[in-house]
Amino acid sequence: MANKKTENGSENRRNFLRLGLMSSVSAVAGASLISNLATGEEKKASGEKVRVLTPDGKMVEVDAESINNYPEAVITPEESRKGIPDKKFVMVIDLSKCKNARKCVEGCQKAHKLDDHQEFMKVQLMQNNEEGSPYWLPKPCFHCDEPPCVTVCPTGATFKRDDGIVLIDNERCIGCKFCITSCPYSARTFNWGHKEKFDDKSQPYSPETQVPAAEGTVMKCDFCPDMLRQGKLPYCASSCPMGVIYFGDKNEDIVTNGTETVSFSQLIKDRGGYRHLEHLGTKPNVYYLPAVNRQFPVERGFDVDEEILDRYKDVPIVKEFKEQGKL
């Protein structure tokens, strides 16, 4: 064998390659990244730092934006209202794999520059009835096909795009909060007070990134259209270590969680996919796979901050666990 293998686990690299090869678009996006770097143009600053090693042996912290560049800068507001043509995005969340690792929440918060408590993606502890088994429910915005929030918006600040994504334009939102009250899934949050980061105008605002946020406007999970335009998964899906979150295009009928790519319809069929609160007629675009034969006992999810744990204190099973001394 003439070819030489590097020592670092070939398995790892294999996976990495596999994914890389499986992805057609990202290759192109990657190429554009390179060219951006080479020319050194179109660089912006943001608070995020990345640590790299320079060839002269120095560990340097550079601004992420200065070596990374998203193409969303060229997305016009009209385009961001229309969406990516001929797509219809769906998310499938496999409840049997979720163990409340909260990596999705963190990834999302980091990407959208959210505060600790502002969560587009919430992980809730649910128990349908006393006998029913408790389960962790990661809850993004459901991007409903009959979105009550969009219906009630008086200025069209929140809108539904042709690709199924429901977005908010915080430059148009007047902060009446009607959409928050009309959302049965409590998916929306409000920027109550002023924060310094709102003033950071280094990155031009786009509804597709929701950065920078603005005081007195509504925000929510956006399915990361900026990533989708690069052919990449939303942050929650890519940061989940368990592969709980599948994401894809319903028209293509393909969803992926980063490590495996499967047919959406087949997955829903095999695993008994359902939508939350179906009877409300909101027609969500987020599907759940029931927590059958789950990979982790629900108790594993309590392995988080005491403060986060405290959120679930009203769930009956938590009380029970506490009595049994499991917590």
């Binding site: 600040a157 939102c173 007047i174 009446c176 007195g216």
Partner: peptide
């Protein structure tokens, strides 16, 4: 008073 962005009222 309840509206978050009074400055944008004319958007209505």
């Amino acid at each position: 008073l309840c509206i978050g962005r009074l400055d944008r009222l004319y958007y209505l």
